[in-house]
Design a protein around this nucleic acid. Sequence first.
DNA 1: GTCTATATGTTGATAGAC
DNA 2: GTCTATCAACATATAGAC
Lengths: 213, 213
Amino acid sequence: MADEQRGRRGSYAKGVVKREEILERALEVIAREGYRGASVKELADAVGLSQAGLLHYFDSKEELFTAIVRKRDEVDLARFDPIDLSAASLADVREGYVSVVRRNAEVPGLVQLYSQMAVDAADVQHPAHGFFIERGENLRGMLASVIAARSESGDITDRIDPDALARILQAVADGLQVQWMLEPDVDMAGIVGQLFDVLVQAVPARTGDDRTA
Amino acid sequence: MADEQRGRRGSYAKGVVKREEILERALEVIAREGYRGASVKELADAVGLSQAGLLHYFDSKEELFTAIVRKRDEVDLARFDPIDLSAASLADVREGYVSVVRRNAEVPGLVQLYSQMAVDAADVQHPAHGFFIERGENLRGMLASVIAARSESGDITDRIDPDALARILQAVADGLQVQWMLEPDVDMAGIVGQLFDVLVQAVPARTGDDRTA
DNA sequence: GTCTATATGTTGATAGAC
DNA sequence: GTCTATCAACATATAGAC
């Protein structure tokens, strides 16, 4: 795990620290100013380095952006770290799912970066290929484990197997992002909330309004 | 409508015909050999023209690829032309939806092209921006109109409004494509079929096996 | 209408000074 | 570790011959 996060060079001490700083800064900038297939130079300017200076820490442009996406996930996951999945209620899962989507609507640039990278990473040669596969597996694994447990107790529809259900929840979130990039008025969180309530037969009391605005 | 399909130059007679020929040929090649952000030259070679010769028919690379995506839709829609939407049963809609997804699994290159373009077209400046907005509206309009009619008669869940439901069906299809590009084993048609059956409360007799393989 | 040739621009990557 | 300078490798778009 740690190995994958190191570049060829910045493997020790200060190098690693600086690297992380760069990635954090890059995420801020992209979140704020958007990402449209930015060049290394553009990003370098944004984080306060020359193009060569930035590439000192990464082997290539693709590796650089792969590291950024990785870092994004790392940051996002840290927010959910405290949650114990095995003890999570369905309402917890619902709230987690919806809140992630809601939060995405606040960082257009990151949504754009993610969508772009996800498509590019379809190429087996792309450095982020393996990452996106693993990421999907982890994401769906979290969903499916909770779903499967509740499914046995009859809380959840048994007309879709947990794996397919997890794929659907992932797909809806991803697909709505594309619709939302095209039309920012789309209420992603509200829609995924509705879907969750229908797929999960037992309707829990709504904890609040899902909508962003 | 016709205007949008004409380039600056090839506006008349033979030019238009040749243009359409180019687009059809491009679709074949992309469907067969894939698309990875291909350059104009690559496509030109594939369709048997020089780069300049190809750009003779289109104002720019972006316009060219926008025309290709447009053409793809045109071809696809023609296959469903005979269907009268106002008379369509729920089973018809289900079958149409599932079969489109099933067919996509046979043309990886086109899926890749579509996904890539959809992300790029998020940019308001992109020539395909308006096209993708319209396309989404049309697609969801078809779904929503049938759904709304059935919803009143109680065939469909009323816990999701027709618009949201249509967005969900669109999003799942798009999102699954990304998963499928990453992992070609994903059974897109099977999954969307299951989803449809759950969202539409009255389970129609399955007309057959949705799976591709 | 199609080609060859080329203008013009950008990119990612590297070499080498400091 | 970071910069400046430079490179080769494309890309798209256009000019002009045929």
